[in-house]
Design a protein around this nucleic acid. Sequence first.
DNA 1: CTACTATTCAATAAGTTTCTTGAATAGTGG
DNA 2: CCACTATTCAAGAAACTTATTGAATAGTAG
Lengths: 214, 214
Amino acid sequence: MLVQFAKVARAMGNPHRLNLLELLAQGERSVEALAEAAGLSVANASQHLQVLRRNGLAVSRKRGLHVYYRLSGHEVPILLAALRRTAERHVEEIGRLVHGYFQARDALEPLSRDDLVGRLKEGSVTLLDVRPPEEFAAGHLPGAVNIPLKDLKRRLDELPAGTDIVAYCRGPYCVLAYEAVATLRACGRRARRMEDGFPEWRLAGLPVESAGGA
Amino acid sequence: MLVQFAKVARAMGNPHRLNLLELLAQGERSVEALAEAAGLSVANASQHLQVLRRNGLAVSRKRGLHVYYRLSGHEVPILLAALRRTAERHVEEIGRLVHGYFQARDALEPLSRDDLVGRLKEGSVTLLDVRPPEEFAAGHLPGAVNIPLKDLKRRLDELPAGTDIVAYCRGPYCVLAYEAVATLRACGRRARRMEDGFPEWRLAGLPVESAGGA
DNA sequence: CTACTATTCAATAAGTTTCTTGAATAGTGG
DNA sequence: CCACTATTCAAGAAACTTATTGAATAGTAG
C-alpha cells in the first residue's frame, strides 16, 4: 500500500512534473503545447507526462494527431495545494523566499474569493485576467477582461476608469497578478489582486466561462 | 520554488519514509523506537528521519541520550491524507487492493466520527483502542479501553457485555480495527469500527486523553 | 576517567531517475 | 498510397538514492 502512495509522491517529486501539473490545472492541453510552456523537449515532456499518467495524476485522450492531457480529478489540485502549504510552512529556504519576494508585495491588498464575489455582485469592480490568451480561452472568471501582463501598459484604456481593478492569475505562486497591480498603481489606477488564482476559483466550484462557449 | 516543493514531495516518495511519517503521526518517538516499529536498521532509520527533517516534514529534539522525532505541524497529516485520497482514487493497482481487501471488509459497518460523538454522549457504546500500549499511552480517545489486537481474545471479559463496541486504530489504512471487529463478532459481540483512526480524530480538534495526565 | 549507549556520519555498491538522441508508430491530407 | 506531423519508444551516459557497513560523536552512569 505504502509502496503505491510513495510512487504517487515520487511522481510529484520533480520540478518539471510539478510545473506540468500546474499547467494542467489551467485546463487540457496537447503534449506539444505543454512542452513549449514548460520549456522542455517534446520527447522529455512526453516522458514526464507519462509518469504523471502512470501514477494516476493525469489522463490523456487522443483527438486526431494530438494527445491531450488533463488532470485526473479534483483531488489532484487539492494535493498540490496541500504540498504547497506544507512546503511553505516548513522549509526555511522556501520560507525566506515567500516572506521576502512575496510578502514584500503583500501590501497589494489581496482580496479573498468571498469578498470578490460580493464586490462583483455590487458591480463595483473590474475583473482583470493577466494570463496569456490561451489560458484565458481555456477558462476564466465570468466577466473578466483578458489583458496579458506584457500588454497591460499599452492596453490600459480598455479598463474603465472609475472602478477598482482586481487582478488574478494562475495562483498563489504566480507573480503575474502582483506585477499587474504594481503596474496599474504606477499608472494611477486603483488596483488590488485576488488572493488565489483561476485554478482555486474553479476548485471552489464557482462559475467559470470559457472561449468555446461551454 | 517548484524545486523546493519537489524536494518535499520526494521526501515522501519512499515507502519507509511514509511509514515513519504515519508512525510519527501517532506521537513523538525516539529513533530506536521508530527503527524497531518500521523494521529498519537504526542507521537507516536515522538517515530516513534526517531526510524528513531536512525537508521540513519532521523535527527532532534531544533529551538525554535519545533523539525524539515528531511531525513538524498540522499540515503534514493533511498532506498525507491528500496523498492517500489521490492515490486511492486514481491508481488502479491501489484501487483493486482497496476494493478487494478493504472493501470486502466494509460490511464491518464503519461509524463516522460525528456519529460516534453522538453515541458516546448517549453512553450507548464501549470504545476500544486496539493499538499497542505505547501508542495508546501517547494519546487516545477519551474513555477508550486499550486492548491490543493480539490480546483481544484473552482479555475479552474486560469489555462490558451489554453495549455495542466501536474499535479504532491508526487510521484508514490500518487493519487493526478491521481484524478486531471480525474477532469480536466471531466471539458473539456486537462490534463496529470507527471510520478513521486516532490521528484523524486529533486532527479534527476533538478531545484527546494521554497517559501522562496531559 | 571509563565503559556504555543512542545517534549520526562516511564510504561504498547496487539500483533508479533523468535527459538526450534517433528511430518507430499512428493518424491526416492530398 | 505518400509525405507529413505529433507522439511515443529505446538505448545510453550522468547524476542521484538507497541499504549496509563500520567508525565517530555525544551524552550518562559508575
